[in-house]
Design a binder for these strands. Structure first.
Lengths: 209, 209, 209, 209
DNA sequence: TATGAATGAGCCTTCATTCAT
DNA sequence: CATGAATGAAGGCTCATTCAT
């Protein structure tokens, strides 16, 4: 991103990135096209190219904002009793998935093969936040006896994180939503968001205690 | 897909779909371009359009073959003792990911938002196979006492399936490979495929028994 | 140039190259734009890019045709008495400059610095034809005593070639036409093509005999 | 050029024109772009457009400076014995071509057809200087008997000027350098600048005495 | 007067699809 | 039925010029 962009009013910077994120999310990296992004962002083509060297640079800036959002998300969760905290995380993802839906979508996209190029750029930062959060949460929980002592922290953290991301995926991706619901349709015909959370919490409690 | 396609020698049908799959996988649905696919498949543009109404129809045919491959994959696994069977599944994914790498890549892609249109078409079939396989595997295991009786089968199946798909993802996606390895780098500096399998099996045993 | 182009009817190939040459000549390499060339050549954009990898490849093909034209030009001149032959060359350039005006213009352009990239590609071929023609013409003339024996052939050839190309330049370039005419305006108020030729012949006779 | 420009410190005026000349020379008139010129000239876009109505006006101002440079160049040569003087001119072009290389390049460019628009503006002034210089040089030489009396002055002047400009061209244009060297490669395998001058002088002496 | 951000038409190129042969 | 040339609408990006500050 060029210095010109950083000179803009922060709110405008965010508005532009959000608009771009929406288009990238809706159509994928290749499918997103600059004119559409420009229109959505109320920026002329020329201006956009003053802000970002090219489409890729714009995409990276969008991903950076995605990382910031996730970072902020976890920073805002005060860790406490492990299951309450995880439940909290899951509950908070819903509003997050409404406000920052595009970023969540991109978070899934980044896992796709065709965006492998961007993986070195953001994977670690995207994933690191949750990994560290859950690892420390588990360690603390074990100290307090909330989690069985014989469960290795990394395994517990990986379990929780996997459940959390797959839950998050389900909030924006038809595929993951179907996948989740079809698994549990034997228990409930139709799932609401909070029922999904209950199921996840039930599972985690079962496996970790 | 048009009837003309089905009239082709089955081996040629597969060759064409495989070539298309490779291009779709490598460059994504939008990025894949028909002339390149035609060249890779040794088919003239005209012929391809005789076989498939358009790019989308071709993609669907490719996805169908993907579903067949997964179906065959699970059909070839004879269920036995649950953990041995899961280990078997994980071990067999590696050769699968070499032979049918493009289909595995597409399997991830289908989860992305921008391919939501295709989700209704294949999600259920893609996911149903594994889900049913693991559900029945768990039920049988519980009957034989290999899995704790108080663990609900759907939860066990979801756990296993989640671990399996995330493992499969890691075989083709930089992002998921990193994600997995970074979680467990506290235990092993560098992970080989079989170490990843060991870790997964260790976790599943821990949570399910 | 791609094989597709060579498959076209030769007359059409030439028509396309001539149309492109006209646009390149009129606006310069940078200023020439593909849509205009396509329109002039009655070729769709897509087709043009099937024929030539890109603008540069098209330009090279145009230059190649320019070389062919010059080659044919000299091949068609039967060398005889030296001054009669040179006069013949000068006289024939006028119809050439009408039929193949664009190529003559490009011949000048290629000397410009901004087309240095193309210089290695065509300079030698462009210039070699005339150089060899005049060198052999001079050698033969010296043998026949038409040119003073003490005049080195290379110098004579360089002199003739320089006068010829500057004359050719003057047929298409305002600058060179002015330059020539202003030199000789002391002798004639207004110069016709044949007067220019007379002046050049007068000079060459003066210097070489 | 606007009056505002003339109000600038003369050194700054020259610096701006030199920077612009460098860009125009390097990339051609069409290829040169204003932002790059502005950066090279340490002038803001706005300022540049205060100084010059548009790109064309800037180019004309650059050409004007080119004319001044040529004017100064010839003014600095004190005419003496004709061949010594011509040799002097040729020798001085080399340092000139280093200091004012861009202007020399533009001097060639102006001959190209696509800059015909600018030809009326500068051709006469560009060429007039040399033409007059050599014409008078020849007249004086004839009076002193340095040049054969039966050689018409305009022809001699045209000969000299043509050799001089083609020599100058060769200093910046690949094409003209090759052209010259290939002519004389029969005499010398590799040509240095001073060998080129010797060859030219040898020819002129041969033809004019 | 100076700045440099903003504009948007236009450039080169690609590609899904059609259709004459 | 097969071929592959042709089409032309976009797509990513550049740049001469304007204008608010």
């Amino acid at each position: 991103m060029q210095p010109t962009f950083r000179k803009l009013d922060p709110a405008r910077q965010e508005a532009i990135l959000d608009a771009a994120a929406a288009v990238f999310a809706e159509r994928g990296y290749r499918g997103a096209n600059i004119p559409v992004i420009c229109e959505a962002a109320h920026v002329s083509t020329g201006a956009l190219y003053k802000y970002f060297r090219n489409k890729e640079a714009l995409f990276r800036a969008v991903l950076d904002r995605g990382v910031d959002i996730i970072q902020t998300f976890y920073d805002d969760i005060t860790p406490g009793e492990i299951f309450a905290t995880i439940a909290r995380v899951l509950e908070e993802i819903l509003p997050l998935s409404e406000t920052f839906r595009p970023y969540l979508i991109l978070y899934i996209d980044i896992g796709g093969y065709s965006l492998n190029t961007f993986a070195d750029y953001v994977s670690e930062r995207f994933e690191g936040v949750g990994r560290d959060f859950f690892f420390h949460l588990v360690e603390a929980a074990k100290a307090r006896g909330e989690v069985a002592a014989d469960i290795e922290s990394v395994h517990a953290a990986y379990l929780i994180d996997s459940y959390v991301i797959l839950y998050a995926y389900a909030l924006v991706s038809e595929h993951y939503r179907r996948r989740f619901d079809r698994f549990f349709e034997r228990l409930h015909a139709h799932l609401t968001a909070s029922q999904r959370i209950d199921l996840i919490m039930q599972a985690l409690r079962m496996f970790l205690t």
